[in-house]
């Protein structure tokens, strides 16, 4: 039983080892891109739309509504980032029920990479919205002495983000593998279905947390900027 697809080596290119995590990530990427291309090549703005377009519009509308509710801002700037996170994770988790498919999200490396992306995205969106100085000033408030704790908080929530997703996906796979060896009939199917539900929920949680982190940075800066302007 393998706990991480990182350990499964598919092929090597010189010193670079291509493992299952990367390969299945490409598979997921290819599926998403190909599916998007296939659906969006015949989009129509009329009321009579196809089933694929209907699904994609429902997903995009759902993500926009969620982002708008959480950030109370225009969702357009955040939609590609948060949507890509959600689609990649949910596709990886759902495909985990396919025999032989190793969900990339079952790799701590993948979840860490996604968490790093979030970690980077938070200041990127904050600086893009507020400017570099205003964003950096956020770390010195309310007191410069709290700067280490703020940095630790940033790192710890990134780590928690990565471990939470990895733990949930990996645990589902592990439990399924254990049950498969102990009770080979019927019960693992239920656990797999349960794992599907957990996978979708985890994708949702990851995406929502990402947007919460991004929004908290921008909103906090906005509130402080407004407070400074209002203070004589």
């Amino acid at each position: 039983m393998t706990l991480s697809p990182d350990t499964i080596e598919i092929f090597s290119i010189g010193p670079l080892t291509i493992n299952a995590t990367l390969v299945f990530s490409w598979v997921v990427m290819a599926l998403l891109v190909a599916g998007s291309w296939w659906v969006t090549r015949s989009l129509t703005a009329s009321g009579d739309i196809g089933r694929g377009q209907n699904v994609l519009e429902a997903v995009v509308a759902f993500l926009r509504d969620q982002i708008r509710e959480v950030t109370n801002q225009d969702p357009e700037p955040y939609l590609p980032f948060v949507g890509t996170l959600f689609l990649f994770i949910v596709t990886s988790n759902v495909l985990s029920v396919v025999p032989g498919f190793q969900a990339p999200t079952g790799s701590l490396t993948t979840t860490a990479a996604l968490a790093v992306c979030v970690f980077v995205a938070v200041p990127v969106f904050g600086i893009a919205k507020l400017g570099l100085r205003a964003y950096l000033m956020n770390y010195l408030r309310p007191s410069p002495f709290l700067l280490p704790f703020t940095i630790i908080g940033e790192l710890s929530r990134t780590l928690a983000l990565a471990v939470r997703l990895f733990g949930n996906v990996m645990s589902g796979s592990v439990i399924a593998a254990i049950l498969l060896s102990v009770v080979p009939l019927f019960f693992p199917i239920i656990m797999q279905a349960f794992g599907l539900l957990i996978g979708v929920i985890q994708a949702y949680i990851f995406a929502i947390l990402a947007i919460v982190y991004i929004a908290s940075g921008t909103e906090l800066q906005e509130r402080r900027a407004r407070a400074e302007k209002e203070t004589p």
Binding site: T21, L22, P104, T109, A113, L114, V116, C117
Partner: peptide, 10 residues
């Protein structure tokens, strides 16, 4: 390597 590759992939 996988971490960087996954970031690039993302």
């Amino acid at each position: 390597f996988t971490l960087i590759a996954q970031i690039v992939n993302f």
